[in-house]
Simulated assay, not measured.
Amino acid sequence: MADQQAVLEVKNLKKYFPVKEGILKRTKNHVKAVNDISFEVQEQETFALVGESGCGKSTTGRSILRIIEPSEGEVFFKGVNLLDYSKREFRKMRKDLQLIFQDPYSSLNPRMTVKKLLLEPLLTHGTTNKKEAEQKVVEIAERVGLSKEQINRHPHEFSGGQRQRISIARALILNPQLVILDEAVSALDVSIQAQILNLLIELQKDLKLTYIFISHDLNVVKHISDRVGVMYLGQMMELSNTEDLYSNPLHPYTQSLLSAIPSHDPSVKKERIILKGDVPDPANPPSGCPFHLRCPKAYEKCAMEKPAFIEKEQNHWVACHLYE
């Protein structure tokens, strides 16, 4: 990884949603869905974002692609700040940055055949003439495991796994460089998950793709990712390469998440770390460390001061007062 370059740099990204109250709908507060996070994604790597539901990982992905406009921060793609462009200008760049959703059925127009669904982005971006576009549709469909005959069907005629293959084909047909996968396999059966993950790994190698893989499933993340960022309440708690994170988690939150992974060996007994209480309200986050109300290792300083995000070990970052 040392000889690779960062294809994406996220700096101090924030996304606050206004909370409006009263007849006049005045803004009374803000939900801090993403609260000042920074990270880099190296060329041709898979960078995973993990955490509980509501931690801000999906909002991060959508803010990078400006599906949701960020409140603050910078997002550099190949050295260019994506937030400097108008929406119209940015639309031209979107072919290099694609998103694959959790539910392929809701993201595919049920009235269109697969052929039309795959043709649409090509013709919209004016990348080729119709004959060449139709040939490219057949090629990408076969690449993701669909036959030439199947592309004349509608989405409802396919299984969940096949529909996700259609979504992958639709995302890749414009030859993007960065693909964000938002819980892309979580709705699939385990056996189908494995097939789709293996397909994604194969496509990444062949097409030299870079992935941001958003998931709550730590078993899946371990299988596919090169590095992992752990989020809690809109903030980055820990960031490391996958091997180090799973073998030596530093943050108590990461330790708790990993302790919940079922062991494949019934003879191995794991100590489960049960967290107290619920995730705090992101509209009223706690002072100090956002995790201190649930942390089994919290002490007085944790409630008073927000910990710095420090490099405790080489390429292993953590935001925790225990390591300062």
Rank of each mutant, 00 (worst) to 15 (best):
V179G: 08
A141Q: 01
E134M: 10
N284W: 05
A48M: 00
I37M: 09
K28D: 04
F77A: 03
G234S: 05
Y246H: 05
P176F: 10
E69L: 05
L209A: 10
K15Q: 13
M231S: 08
R227T: 14
E142Q: 15
N12P: 01
D189N: 10
V80C: 00
I166P: 03
E72I: 02
I67T: 12
S167Y: 03
K301R: 12
I23W: 14
Q5I: 15
T27L: 01
D281W: 03
D226Q: 11
E157W: 05
F158Y: 08
I201T: 12
D244A: 13
K222S: 11
E89P: 05
L181G: 06
I214P: 09
L258V: 13
E134Y: 03
Y211R: 06
E89N: 08
K28L: 07
L178A: 11
L172S: 05
P280G: 12
K11V: 14
G161T: 07
A260D: 07
R163M: 10
K205G: 02
V144W: 09
K130E: 15
S215W: 01
P286N: 01
Q177L: 04
F213S: 07
S159R: 04
Q235Y: 02
R294T: 12
Q5R: 13
V75G: 10
P155L: 06
V138C: 02
R91V: 11
N248G: 04
Y323Q: 07
E243G: 03
K28T: 12
K205S: 11
E313H: 13
K116P: 00
M231L: 15
G277D: 06
L200S: 00
I151T: 00
Q235C: 08
F90C: 10
H30R: 12
Q204G: 11
Q150V: 05
L24G: 02
L275Q: 10
E134K: 13
T124E: 11
I64P: 06
I173S: 05
K14P: 01
S71A: 02
V34G: 09
P286L: 09
E45H: 04
E142I: 05
L188Q: 08
D84W: 11
R272L: 15
N29L: 04
Q195E: 13
E72W: 04
S259M: 14
V41S: 07
N198M: 03
I173W: 04
D103I: 00
D265L: 01
E243N: 11
K87V: 03
M236V: 09
I37V: 15
V137M: 05
G160Q: 09
G288E: 04
P249D: 08
I100A: 13
S267M: 12
L97W: 01
K297V: 08
L257E: 11
G56K: 00
S106T: 13
K301I: 15
S247K: 14
S63R: 01
E9C: 06
L83F: 14
P266W: 08
L146P: 03
E43S: 14
S71T: 15
K15R: 14
K208C: 02
S263K: 07
I166G: 11
Y211V: 09
L97M: 14
L257S: 09
E300R: 12
A33W: 13
K208P: 08
S247A: 13
K32F: 13
I64D: 07
K28Y: 02
Q204S: 10
M236N: 05
L178R: 01
P110Q: 05
L275D: 11
